[in-house]
Simulated assay, not measured.
Amino acid sequence: MKVLRLVLAIIVVSLSSYGLITDTSEVIIPYILLFLGTMLFVTGIIEFKKRKPTAITLMLASGFSFFVTIYTLIS
């Protein structure tokens, strides 16, 4: 799980950097949010064993990120 979180973090940073360098942020933002939501979800699963309030907060942030991604892709 920790390797998955690291890979997702690298993908998010890479996409964000690419969007800033090429000035195509409006096209890439839904994909960044999708990977960010997935990363938050995986982190929430990892933290659920240690600290439950932190895990619940991460799950809520992940749900919000997924909602924004779907809303952005639809409109």
Rank of each mutant, 00 (worst) to 15 (best):
18 Y>F: 11
74 I>P: 04
67 F>K: 07
32 I>W: 08
52 K>S: 08
42 V>Y: 03
9 A>Y: 04
24 T>S: 14
13 V>T: 03
9 A>K: 00
31 Y>L: 01
70 I>V: 13
54 T>Y: 09
29 I>G: 00
53 P>W: 04
57 T>Q: 11
31 Y>D: 04
41 F>H: 12
21 I>D: 02
38 T>W: 05
59 M>D: 12
51 R>F: 06
15 L>Q: 09
62 S>H: 09
25 S>K: 11
54 T>R: 03
28 I>S: 00
36 L>P: 07
6 L>C: 04
64 F>M: 06
62 S>D: 07
48 F>M: 14
60 L>Y: 08
37 G>A: 03
2 K>Q: 03
64 F>I: 15
27 V>L: 15
39 M>Y: 08
69 T>P: 06
50 K>Q: 03
67 F>C: 14
54 T>A: 08
16 S>K: 05
21 I>M: 05
54 T>Q: 06
32 I>E: 02
48 F>K: 13
6 L>Y: 08
66 F>A: 10
54 T>D: 09
7 V>E: 10
55 A>Q: 00
59 M>G: 12
54 T>K: 08
45 I>P: 02
21 I>R: 10
52 K>A: 07
16 S>V: 01
67 F>W: 15
58 L>A: 04
21 I>F: 12
10 I>N: 07
54 T>G: 08
67 F>S: 14
41 F>S: 12
19 G>A: 05
29 I>Q: 02
40 L>I: 11
55 A>W: 00
56 I>L: 14
17 S>N: 10
38 T>Y: 05
47 E>H: 10
39 M>L: 11
45 I>D: 06
75 S>N: 15
56 I>P: 12
61 A>M: 14
5 R>E: 06
71 Y>P: 09
46 I>S: 09
46 I>L: 10
1 M>Q: 10
2 K>V: 02
17 S>D: 08
72 T>A: 15
15 L>F: 14
13 V>H: 00
57 T>W: 05
40 L>G: 10
35 F>T: 03
67 F>A: 12
74 I>A: 11
71 Y>T: 12
44 G>Q: 07
40 L>P: 03
9 A>T: 02
6 L>H: 09
53 P>G: 04
11 I>H: 05
40 L>N: 04
66 F>R: 04
73 L>E: 10
47 E>T: 10
23 D>K: 02
43 T>S: 13
3 V>N: 09
6 L>R: 06
66 F>N: 02
29 I>L: 03
47 E>L: 13
63 G>F: 05
36 L>A: 09
48 F>Y: 15
24 T>C: 12
22 T>N: 13
2 K>T: 06
42 V>T: 11
25 S>Y: 15
41 F>C: 12
18 Y>T: 07
4 L>N: 02
12 V>F: 07
63 G>I: 13
74 I>T: 04
58 L>S: 01
61 A>R: 11
66 F>P: 00
59 M>W: 14
65 S>L: 11
66 F>Y: 15
27 V>K: 11
60 L>F: 15
32 I>T: 03
12 V>I: 12
62 S>V: 02
